[in-house]
Design a protein around this nucleic acid. Structure first.
Length: 310
DNA sequence: AAGACGAAAGTGGTTGA
DNA sequence: TCAACAACTTTCGTCTT
């Protein structure tokens, strides 16, 4: 059991083609085979402790017992949970009298745990965040960050007058942006089952009120996502990345939608590597129109050629 | 026949008065 | 609050493979 666990954590060879040329993409939480493009594991965990110990004393101090503190549960996972089994620690059944006592204890425990309205709302919102994030296959750190953002929003009294769902979705989007994870507002709004406009409004509101600095999305963040969905080889992905880094130097990326640029770069890469994809295919996956791809791609080709001939 | 190209009009959001 | 504005979309006719 132990060994199996350890073996699973240590993936070095692609099960698809046997290559050992793997890339761990922590930003998108994936392990990708650089030879065949096979995504081996999404949602990879951050391994190892988040602290460093320099001697035995520190190690003893910093090692933890019990569950870690988490922001995803309304009381940070610190309160006691009473088991629902009607048995004692030895597995022996309770007597009816004990049963009734335990029942009363549980009832009061529940009442104490989520006491007032704000607590209840927080509990509801945090479970909502986990639900949506799960539907989108987002890694755990995103959920933690989103929960933290939501807590701050509650503390600053920013929720009043806004729907909880809208703010939770906005918090998730914000945490994705902050962690550099390429998820569009559209995707999140759809997963949370509310319209994009409201999520966007709440998002802008949160950013302003909480004084967050969110860097603009880099088109490069979309590349690996796109080429995975397009089932393109690692080579094409690499070329697309190179195109974008050149485009950034030439100041072609500012002011343009990052998805459009990423889509155009992917298109060019697909043409260059010979495994051509139609504009429509890419447009559909990147959620932009063919026209936008064409415009971006025309600009890119012109400027890049000019740069190369210099 | 499918895909690529480009013009023109329309849309939703931002900005600055 | 409103108009100007840039980016992007929709639509549609034409050209290319």
């Amino acid at each position: 059991m132990r060994r199996k666990e350890r073996e699973r954590q240590r993936i070095n060879i692609c099960p698809e083609c046997g290559s050992s040329n793997l890339m761990r993409d922590y930003e998108n939480a994936e392990i990708v085979c650089m030879d065949c493009g096979f995504v081996i594991e999404s949602k990879i965990a951050d391994q190892g402790p988040e602290w460093r110990a320099f001697d035995d004393e520190q190690r003893a101090k910093r090692a933890r017992a019990g569950a870690p503190v988490t922001y995803t549960i309304h009381d940070k996972g610190l309160s006691t949970m009473i088991d629902w089994h009607d048995t004692d620690v030895y597995g022996k059944k309770f007597t009816p009298g004990q049963k009734a006592q335990i029942y009363r204890l549980r009832k009061w425990q529940r009442r104490i745990r989520v006491s007032d309205a704000t607590e209840r709302n927080l509990a509801y919102a945090l479970s909502e965040i986990s639900k949506v994030a799960n539907a989108l296959n987002l890694p755990k750190n995103i959920v933690e960050t989103a929960s933290l953002i939501y807590r701050k929003a509650v503390k600053e009294h920013l929720i009043r007058g806004r729907s909880i769902q809208g703010v939770t979705a906005a918090a998730i989007y914000m945490s994705c942006r902050q962690c550099g994870l390429a998820r569009t507002l559209d995707e999140i709004a759809r997963a949370a089952n509310i319209n994009k406009k409201e999520v966007g409004r709440s998002y802008r509101f949160l950013v302003k009120e909480l004084n967050y600095f969110i860097p603009p999305v880099k088109p490069g963040n979309y590349i690996s996502k796109l080429s995975n969905r397009l089932t393109m080889e690692g080579k094409a992905e690499e070329i697309a990345h190179r195109i974008i880094s050149m485009a950034r130097k030439l100041k072609l990326t500012s002011g343009r939608g990052p998805t459009g640029i990423a889509a155009a770069a992917s298109y060019i890469a697909s043409v260059l590597t010979g495994e051509r994809r139609t504009q429509r295919e890419i447009a559909e996956i990147a959620q932009v129109t063919e026209v936008t791809i064409r415009n971006r791609y025309k600009e890119l080709v012109e400027k890049l050629l000019f740069e190369i001939t210099l």
